[in-house]
Every structure is written in structure tokens, then in C-alpha cells.
């Protein structure tokens, strides 16, 4: 059986909120290392990969592998019933028909119990190859969100160029063009404002802004976001969570002229 108690229901709420517009029906794969999710959007352009490690829960118990097939719209409806500082416990039997969600108030004696009917989801599991990226950029998540939201007003696509000059986000549209360049930057007082660029080769790639704006819904989960780029391979956008957990998005590039 699965029993996973999360001190902050809000964390799970935010994760589901960040991915629900990208993917609809997902398997939450539970085993003794934690709860993982991997799903592609309908167009097979973007992939979501979430890992909530067992250390993120207290206690965490999962005796055998359980796949919880959940519709995220249904899950969102139920998670709305949790107050943001509630404690969340996920429960399921070994061959479950339902997943149970229990919300407990840390301050009062309220206990709310909900269940969601599970679905059989036949999902392909993709092998994501280990990649030595040509460029890795860590930057404030809010800054990345702002750049994506600003540039989508002008164009559908953004080119991300990383060179020893820094990283340049540029777009061209019908009304004109826009570009934002960031250089490596260390803020001693506010390390969450740091911009760190590690580059082994210059990289230049083009991506659809619609997807990037979507990924940025995860901005509330982490102060910093990490972008990993190599020419001609999918972009990795990573939000690190506490206890080595993470929410990652992959996006296929646009290529050719």
C-alpha cells in the first residue's frame, strides 16, 4: 500500500497546477524511492518529468510499485478543497480503484477526506538519455518567466543563444523584434538573484514560446530555474524542489529555415 504524508499540501497543489495545462491523464508511479510522473503533451513536443522523492514525505510508505492513473482536472478539483497550509496524505491500496487524499489542518482538528477514481492509462515510458549539455544557465525563475511573457507579445518563437558574451533571448515578429541579454552575475546578499552560465560550446536554438510560458507556471516552486541546452537536442528546464525532488520540462527545438 501507499501512504505518503506531505507537510505542505501546497507543494503538491503547485506541482499539479504547473503541469495540468500541458498534460491531462497521467500515471503517478509510486515505489519505495518516491512518486514519479512522466508524460508528454498531446503534440509530443513537450515532456513533463516530476520526481517527489520519499524524503520529501514524512512518513513515506510504499511496499510495491503502484501506478496511480489520475486525471489532472479531477485532481485539481480535489486539491482546491485543501487549504494551503494543510497537511496532505495520499493513500492507496496495492491494486487500487481509487486514491485517497486526506487534508489535515495543522491548527484545528479538521480532517477532510476525498477520493478520486483511478483510470487505466497505457503510457509509454520514455528513456531520457543522459546528456552533456553545451550550456547550462541558472537564473531567477521569475526573471525567466518575465522574459518569456514579454517576448510572446511579439513572436511565437524565441532564439536562445549562449556565448561567452552571455545568454541572449531574442525574437522577431510582425511588429518588430526584442532581445534580452543576461550576463553572469553574483549577488552576495541575494543568491537567489544569481545568474550562472556554464558553457562548454556556443549554443543557439529556437523554441516555441507558448510552451516556455506554460513551463513558467512552475515559477512559484523554486527561486531559480536551470536551463540546459545543446545544439539540436531538446531543452531541459528544471525547477529543483527540496529533498532532491524536481520538476523538469523538456521541449523539442524548432529547426530548419
Amino acid at each position: 500500500m501507499l501512504e505518503a504524508r506531505l507537510e505542505q499540501a501546497n507543494l503538491f497543489k503547485k506541482v499539479v497546477d504547473a503541469i495540468k495545462d500541458l498534460v491531462q491523464d497521467c500515471n503517478f508511479d509510486c515505489n519505495d524511492s518516491g512518486i514519479a510522473l512522466q508524460a508528454m503533451d498531446n503534440s509530443h513536443v513537450a515532456l513533463v518529468s516530476m520526481m517527489l522523492r520519499s524524503e520529501s514525505f514524512a512518513p513515506f510508505r510504499c511496499d510495491r510499485n503502484i501506478a496511480l492513473g489520475i486525471n489532472l482536472t479531477s485532481l485539481t478539483k480535489v486539491l482546491k478543497c485543501a487549504q494551503s497550509d494543510d497537511i496532505l496524505t495520499l493513500k492507496a491500496e496495492d491494486a487500487p480503484d481509487v486514491v485517497e487524499l486526506v487534508f489535515e489542518s495543522a491548527e484545528s482538528d479538521r480532517i477532510s477526506e476525498y477520493s478520486i477514481k483511478l483510470m487505466d492509462i497505457d503510457q509509454e515510458h520514455l528513456g531520457i538519455p543522459e546528456t552533456d549539455y553545451g550550456a547550462t544557465i541558472s537564473m531567477p525563475a521569475a526573471e525567466f518567466q518575465r522574459i518569456c511573457r514579454d517576448l510572446i507579445a511579439l513572436s511565437e518563437s524565441v532564439s536562445i543563444e549562449c556565448s561567452k558574451e552571455g545568454v541572449k533571448f531574442a525574437c522577431q515578429g510582425d511588429i518588430g523584434s526584442g532581445a534580452v541579454t543576461l550576463r553572469q552575475h553574483t549577488n552576495v546578499d541575494k543568491p537567489e538573484m544569481n545568474v550562472e552560465i556554464n558553457m562548454s560550446e556556443p549554443v543557439s536554438l529556437t523554441f516555441s514560446l507558448k510552451y516556455l510560458v506554460n513551463f513558467c507556471k512552475a515559477s512559484g516552486l523554486s527561486n531559480q530555474v536551470r536551463l540546459c541546452l545543446s545544439n539540436e537536442v531538446p531543452l531541459l528546464v528544471e525547477y529543483s524542489l527540496a529533498n532532491n525532488s524536481h520538476l523538469r520540462f523538456y521541449l523539442a527545438p524548432k529547426i530548419g529555415d
Binding site: A46, H125, L126, S157, P234, A252, G256, D257
Partner: peptide, 14 residues
């Protein structure tokens, strides 16, 4: 214009 690639060619089915 550039064409949107799919992830299928990058990630293999396990």
C-alpha cells in the same frame, strides 16, 4: 520558417 520538431526522435521508448 523553422519547423517544430517532435520529442519522439530524441527519446526512446523503454
Amino acid at each position: 520558417p523553422k519547423h517544430q520538431q517532435s520529442l519522439d526522435s530524441y527519446f526512446c521508448t523503454r
